[in-house]
Computed example of a mutant assay.
Amino acid sequence: MKIGLYFGTFNPIHIGHLIIANHMAEHSDLDQIWMVVTPHNPHKLKSTLLDDHHRLEMVHLATQDYAKIKPSDVEFKLPQPNYTVNTLAHLQEKYPQYEFSLIMGEDNLNSLHKWKNYEVILQNHSVYVYPRFNSGEIEEQFINHSKIHRVGAPVIELSSTFIRESIKIGKNIQPLLPNSVWEYVDINNFYKK
């Protein structure tokens, strides 16, 4: 089974994340998409990042109606800070029957050469890239790389930062979140301060 790993803080998860994840599940050769919730880095200021368990719960709520999309807390149990290469090695050891790939936006592809052991990642895993506006110049080595697959997913310009800032100033962002996530955010008064 081919698993696509879609990493993020999901603070909060929004419809843009689901559109990309569902597109990858339905229009690529990936069998499942795991939404990997990135834990809070203890060495960074907390700022507006909700506790790990709240963000994981929102991903659970958002994905419950999608058979091919699953929440994952795998990085919660790994040493901090999290490096993708280590997470991939852990998952491959734990689930040797699965083939793991990364899902990322074109903007992240631009900085892939700065990731820890990125060559090891590309040697052992495929990368599925979705388009972004203003993604900048793609590194020459990644343009025709055999492990990098561009997927013609919809271009979604929606960010969790925009949602948090809008909530803080009292705007109605309900259409931008799955209903269950909107209710969770609203009941808990998240992002209002």
Results as ranks from 00 to 15, higher is better:
10 F>G: 07
12 P>C: 09
14 H>D: 04
18 L>Y: 02
19 I>L: 13
25 A>W: 10
37 V>E: 07
43 H>E: 13
47 S>V: 08
49 L>R: 07
52 D>Q: 03
58 M>N: 04
58 M>T: 03
68 K>S: 12
68 K>E: 03
68 K>P: 00
71 P>D: 12
71 P>N: 06
77 K>W: 00
83 Y>D: 12
89 A>I: 01
93 E>C: 00
94 K>M: 02
96 P>D: 04
106 E>K: 11
106 E>A: 15
112 L>F: 09
114 K>M: 13
114 K>L: 15
115 W>T: 08
115 W>R: 11
116 K>F: 09
119 E>S: 10
119 E>Y: 01
121 I>T: 06
124 N>F: 01
124 N>A: 03
126 S>A: 13
129 V>F: 05
129 V>C: 11
130 Y>H: 13
140 E>F: 02
147 K>Q: 15
149 H>R: 12
149 H>V: 11
161 T>M: 08
161 T>A: 13
166 S>A: 15
166 S>R: 07
168 K>V: 00
170 G>C: 11
171 K>W: 12
173 I>H: 02
175 P>G: 05
176 L>D: 09
177 L>A: 10
178 P>E: 07
179 N>H: 11
179 N>E: 14
180 S>E: 14
181 V>A: 08
183 E>W: 05
190 F>T: 05
190 F>N: 06
192 K>L: 10
